[in-house]
Amino acid sequence: MKAGDVAYFRAQSVSDAVAAFRSCEGDARYLAGGQSLLAAMNLRLLTPDLLIDIAHIDALRGIERRGGEIRIGALTRHAEILSSPIIASHVPLLAAAAPWVAHPAIRNKGTIGGSIAFADPASEFPAVALALNARIELDNGDSVRFVEAQDFFLDLYETAAEPGEILSAVWFPVATPDQRCTFDELARRRGDYAIVGVAIVADFSGEIVDRIRIVFFSVGSTPVRALRAEAALTGTALVDTDIELAQQALAGDLSPSDDVQVSAATRMHLASVLLRRQLGKLPVPTPKAVRA
């Protein structure tokens, strides 16, 4: 199918883009990489009136360290995340997740800002943002505000961004030496949306978990923190009995629904298996090696 008729505007600055958004009487959409938006338009699931191309706004680019955080500009492509030495050393969880995102050609075009703004509950980056409680930078053309990831993902494809606000950057905390992370997902084929996936980050004092954040994706309308499982593991040394308790606690954390391919019960079971396996991998973090 071909996309419906739509107008196009190439913005040169954020204020330029927001002005175009505000002056549009119909449905205006920001276009960055377009890897989800254009696919939906080609199915006529989305028929916006105006596309505002923000891909040429320089202010939305760049990966840099700012104090204890790494600021990743919204237009940073998945492939750049994969190959960035800064991200590899300071945001290893994001680096570990990146190879799981779709296929090489999608990673060459898709952007982190687009991925997080689109808030697909089956996507990897929103889950990583939530696990690290990244700060989401939102720009309305006049001012910039920040929303923590845990307050950002509200519902299916719904975020705390106001209409017209542009997700301009994502700020990830720099990993500390005592921090370990792991990422994995179960997908039928390489690059598919996961049946279930998990991102885990934990701070250790020696063998003991001080603090742990566990986020599942593809299990609900947003990425989901497993708070009860986190509580079960905090202060433990992640021995088998601790992990079993966390697996049991998971039933209170996740409430996936049935879909046409996978039942809620299967998803729950797979989430539990994935949790145990990934916790077992925590002490020795092994980000997936990838050629990029």
Binding site: Y8, R10, L31, G34, Q35, L38, A39, N42, L51, D53, A55, A79, P104, A105, I106, N108, K109
Partner: peptide
């Protein structure tokens, strides 16, 4: 860089 021609608009390629 390799990209999908179906997920890129001609106007974006300007």
């Amino acid at each position: 860089r390799v990209i999908h021609g179906c997920l890129t608009l001609a106007v974006q390629a300007d």
